[in-house]
Design a binder for these strands. Structure first.
Lengths: 349, 349
DNA sequence: CTGAAAGCGCTAACAT
DNA sequence: ATGTTAGCGCTTTCAG
């Protein structure tokens, strides 16, 4: 444990005051060329780097932006996180990533830790910040935090001062369903997720309106809950088979995310059915999973670069007290692949 | 921007000294019940939380463990990270995740940031810390850092004081090849990755020895370089097809990781060949990808819970100046699935 | 342009 | 048991 050099030792060796060393480091004021040279030499000699804790304590700015994600094992989040990080990096900020591991208690802990360590801004993705009905305690917490630290989220926190950069779920559902309609589907299920989650709630709501607008009967059994993982999709699809024995079986299934689509496909395959000939499958998110499985998944995706960039830019602006719109929308895009359109047909389309 | 409460205000309102408040907060010394009660009341009233920057500055301990991963978009890393985080959490430490986005310059930056912010320990995964030939500059950097902060890695850094928790690559290759041999394969390719990377280098070395031990000809064209992604696997497999026209084509392919296996399978499918009947596929890592694609991938995996636990425990021990072995090995396990064993056969096995 | 000095918020001796 | 004081390492007035 070598003891670390500090600004005083540098100052002594360069025969200047600590203040001058600080000025050279930060460029906050003019320093004579001669002294600057001397200081820089010693700095290089020791490879001196200022203690960020002390720096943060005095300046009350850390240049850290905290990213709290519900689950970094989901490629959806890591994809956005990398895009955010890239942008933050370019803006001279550090991305500090926290994983809430899908647990509320940990989410709160992460949040408080970011407060304790004085992050300059916070980016919240998923978890409690994406509940359709905001938990009042959570809103309280967020509100207290936002008194001191600007918060931007991909979800919503009712009654709290947060900035939103959200996916346009409605247009995503529109694109997906129009595509399926155009392929002749009339019986479409929307599988997985929880109605208590904002993004899922919005998809389901839109799903119903689209059906209504088209004059197609809405069937309650075509919508079902599950976790956002492979097992969830699998469970749902099997339920769907069960609940539709002797009834109108959907010819197309929209999975709430790529993970659940994987489970859906497994369940379909186990019954010896073909995709897309017997049942077409489509999903939301368009992570690398959609391009990995066979047949490749038709999926609703988003411009992730843009998404991450906006999230980061908003956080940075807020950290610098710049005004930004409180609400920004990220458009959805449809990526058509073989899970809704047969391989041979794809070529002729 | 409400101004934050500090220990002095708490002290004043509770009519005690700041030191007493500190004692109540940290439990570092006895405080009379009466004063403790008064202090706690005020603390609750303001929901006071100590400034971690100031705390870290005085105690020189932050209870932060920095995790620097080469690429959090790879589920291999996120899987380990979550396991580490879980353990760190249980030990009262914070996992601070940094993503190097596969860039050396960023890896260095992340490292330095962790030093600047005085992490109590560092966990390094991938990137420069997994080069077969350690970059001397990098070793230098790591060495300087390890003077002050204990470092544990899943790779190696020659000539630097780092603690290692490594995967037993050799036994992984053994398991994989024995399995393939038992299925009758004699011509086996090892596809993707870079020989400059330690884990890949070790796999290739072992691959050659196993062939030799079995008296099977080693063919240079059965090994090839690529990035660790889907495109890399795809490229390699196509190259393999090309380079083997009119020659002995391998009947089994080992992909360097799950990502590249996806690319390998795509290339095989495009030629109208079947897996495993025409070509068997196997990969390393056994992330969720191996269970997602069809046929499910036979893969060499690791006890991730144990892996993460050991990594975290080592970091925590080191942070607390406890002795730990400098080198620990994580065993490999084989997960047999349909990409090497036909579905019907699986049932009878 | 430069140095002295105060202070960011906390903890850890050191007294009492 | 508790208060006083001196830092931790840095930046930032304020003088000069």
């Amino acid at each position: 444990m070598k003891d670390e050099v500090n600004i005083y030792q540098i100052a002594r060796e360069a025969d200047v005051s600590p203040a001058t060393v600080s000025r050279v480091m930060t460029g906050s004021a003019r320093v004579s060329d001669e002294k600057k040279r001397r200081v820089q030499e010693i700095i290089r000699k020791y490879d001196y780097r200022p203690n960020a804790l002390a720096q943060g304590l005095t300046t009350t700015r850390t240049r850290n932006v905290g990213i709290v994600a519900a689950d970094i094992e989901n490629p959806y989040y890591t994809r956005i996180i990398t895009r955010i990080s890239r942008e933050l990096e370019a803006e001279g900020y550090n991305a500090v990533i926290y994983d809430a591991m899908n647990r509320y208690d940990l989410e709160v802990k992460c949040l408080q830790r970011m407060v304790d360590t004085r992050a300059d801004a916070l980016i919240l993705m998923g978890g409690k910040s994406d509940e359709q009905q905001t938990d009042p305690d959570y809103a309280d917490l967020i509100n207290r935090i936002s008194d001191n630290i600007p918060i931007v989220t991909t979800g919503k926190v009712d009654g709290a001062r947060v900035y939103q950069v959200c996916i346009d779920e409605m247009s995503g559902v529109d694109l997906a369903m129009e595509h399926l309609f155009s392929r002749g589907h009339r019986h479409i299920a929307l599988i997985g997720g929880h109605g208590s989650v904002r993004s899922t709630f919005e998809k389901r709501t839109r799903y119903r309106s689209v059906l209504k607008a088209r004059g197609i009967t809405y069937r309650e059994r075509y919508i079902m809950d599950s976790d956002y993982d492979i097992a969830g999709g699998y469970k749902c699809m099997n339920e769907l088979f069960h609940s539709n024995i002797g009834r109108t079986m959907p010819t197309a299934v929209m999975a709430i995310n790529d993970f659940s689509a994987v489970g859906v496909e497994h369940a379909i395959r186990e019954r010896g059915l073909r995709i897309p000939e017997d049942i077409a499958v489509l999903s939301f998110d368009n992570t690398f999973i959609a391009e990995s499985i066979m047949p490749r998944l038709t999926a609703v995706g988003y411009a992730y670069d843009d998404f991450g960039q906006k999230l980061a830019a908003t956080a940075v602006a807020l950290a610098g007290d710049t005004e930004v719109p409180a609400y920004q929308l990220i458009p959805s895009k449809l990526f058509v692949r073989e899970s809704t359109v047969g391989e041979k047909e794809m070529l002729t389309l």
